[in-house]
Simulated scan of single mutants.
Amino acid sequence: MRKFGLIGYPLSHSFSKKFFTEKFKEERITDCEYELYPIENIELFVKLWSDNPELWGVNVTIPYKVQILPFLDEIDEASTEIGAVNCILIGRKNGEQCIKGYNTDAYGFEESLKPLLEPHHRKALIFGDGGAAKAVKYVLNKLNIPFLVVTRKATEGSILYEAVDEKLLDEHTLLINTTPLGMSPDTDTCPPIPYACLTDKHAAYDLVYNPEETLFLKQVRKKGGKTKNGLEMLHLQALRSWEIWNS
């Protein structure tokens, strides 16, 4: 039996467990299982994989995407650039155990974003500058799309929401929400920008996927803009994890 799972704390619910459990059932994969491993501190990761020799790989979620780095033997290019890991392969290299970290968030976001893009989406605004924004910045840099980060509090390298006006929105037609604004149960919240200034040239991507259409996406759609939520990104990053674990 090969084991896979998710580490984080706390782990009250998990997209990943549901996704992989259903995948194994539908594809009649009977020699694999996916479990939740809520570890209270990152030092317990060593004990987790040493006590479970059948553990082949894990996904990593809050708050360990950065804390896990010192425990890894190698990390991929995206993880190096982003400074965070969300997928781990526990394998062997030259007869020795080798634990390698990957960032599949970047892959999931990029492949999900590409179909939304049109030639006039040349500049972007990223709402929020937390952990989720790191993968978004990496992908936009890779796609050569300049961006501005918009935050509630003044920080180096970001602008305030008050600075987002019609002129700025006219130039930046790709809008990406990386904040939890609009996430259930707070569905009546959204990034505070002048939605009246939006046009059908705008495209909005929301990393939130519950509800399916956030207030942010709804307001952009009403102005004729293209919209997409983060559910496909989750599916793609999960499938990429499966590819890595079976490589």
Rank of each mutant, 00 (worst) to 15 (best):
G101C: 11
R92N: 15
K100Y: 09
E81Y: 09
E96P: 03
I99H: 13
Y64D: 02
E81S: 02
R92G: 05
A84K: 00
A78Q: 02
P70K: 11
I62N: 03
G83V: 04
E81M: 10
Q97Y: 12
V66G: 08
V66L: 04
L69Q: 04
F71C: 11
I82N: 04
T61V: 04
I90R: 02
A78G: 01
F71I: 03
I88T: 07
V66R: 04
G101Y: 11
A84I: 02
Q67C: 05
A84W: 05
K93T: 08
A84H: 06
G91S: 13
R92E: 12
T61I: 04
E81L: 01
Y64N: 07
A78D: 09
P63H: 03
I68E: 04
N86L: 03
G83F: 01
I82W: 09
G83R: 01
P63I: 13
K100R: 13
A84S: 11
I82P: 00
G83K: 00
V85L: 07
C98H: 14
K65S: 06
L89R: 13
G83C: 02
N86S: 13
N86E: 09
D76E: 08
I62V: 10
I75K: 10
Q67Y: 06
V66S: 07
K100A: 12
K100H: 09
G91P: 06
T80Y: 08
K100M: 08
G95C: 12
G91W: 14
K65D: 06
I90P: 05
D76Y: 05
P70C: 08
N94T: 14
I62E: 03
L69W: 05
P63C: 09
G101R: 08
I88Q: 07
P70M: 02
T80G: 01
L89C: 07
F71E: 07
I62P: 00
G83S: 10
N86W: 01
N94E: 15
V66N: 02
D76F: 06
N94K: 15
I62A: 13
E77L: 10
L89S: 14
Q97E: 11
I68M: 01
E77A: 07
G101E: 15
I90L: 07
